[in-house]
Design a protein around this nucleic acid. Structure first.
Lengths: 130, 130
DNA sequence: TTACACGTTAAAGTGAACTCTAAGTCAAGC
DNA sequence: GCTTGACTTAGAGTTCACTTTAACGTGTAA
């Protein structure tokens, strides 16, 4: 079991942010008798999953939806399909981001190459604006 | 020459945002006698360049730095190297974003595959938390 | 036992990037 | 001449995701 400062170090995330994620309903650490948070491997894995989604700009609200579906799932009420749909939707936005990034990476690479070819002339700058 | 509503349509960006970018020093459209903004192809190209950088999360402040260097460049004071350095720095962040996105894309794909294999069982959910 | 590191909370504050409001000007069409 | 719609401005408001503050509790080493 880890303290908040330990998983803070392990995930390179401030304790502040970890508490904030808990307040937003993304994490559910257990507590000691006097209310100190304790994190097990499962919670650590979950936090890493959340951080992955955040790094790809999934809004906290959407992550919470996923968590809520997870928690509300039972034999009578299966939420697998809903979760699958959320993941597939996010997969689409991740792929769109990848497209955009690849194109911009190419643009920057081209521009850098142009700058290098022309250096040190500025008058013939490849950008030609404003 | 385009009006603000025309380049708004052409770039899928609200006129509000385009004026905001101008206020932030990223665009310099000319004006008609009574102060109405007019955009030429160069300004349109420039806006598209700005939108590319924004789509890859370059902060407006950094874009402005690039613009400022561009505008302050002259025969006596060459800013090519500084601009090159800014672009190279952003190239690094774009590559880091690409890395992160690719990894998360893989993770989501794996998770979706796992959900599909196990469907409709929830008890053996691949996430196993919280 | 006192110091100090580390934990707790609710709530207010921050910064970035828009987004909207209010009050106004202006040109074209009926 | 009047209405409509597109433009103008400064400045206030919004949203998101933290981040800080203030005030306090707890455990352990010197």
């Amino acid at each position: 079991m880890y303290t908040i400062s330990e998983i803070s170090r392990l995930t390179q995330t401030t304790a502040h942010t970890i508490r904030y994620y808990e307040k937003e309903g993304l994490l559910f650490p257990s507590r000691t008798a006097n209310g100190v948070r304790r994190y097990d491997e499962t919670q650590l894995t979950w936090l890493r999953f959340v951080l992955r989604l955040r790094a790809t700009h999934m809004p906290i609200e959407q992550i919470r939806q996923y968590v809520d579906l997870f928690l509300s799932s039972s034999d009578e009420h299966d939420t697998t399909n809903d979760r699958l749909r959320l993941l597939e939707a996010h997969q689409q936005t991740v792929r769109a981001q990848l497209q955009e990034l690849k194109q911009t990476e190419q643009m920057i690479t081209d521009k850098i190459a142009a700058y290098r070819r022309l250096h040190p002339s500025v008058s013939t700058d490849p950008v030609r604006s404003p």
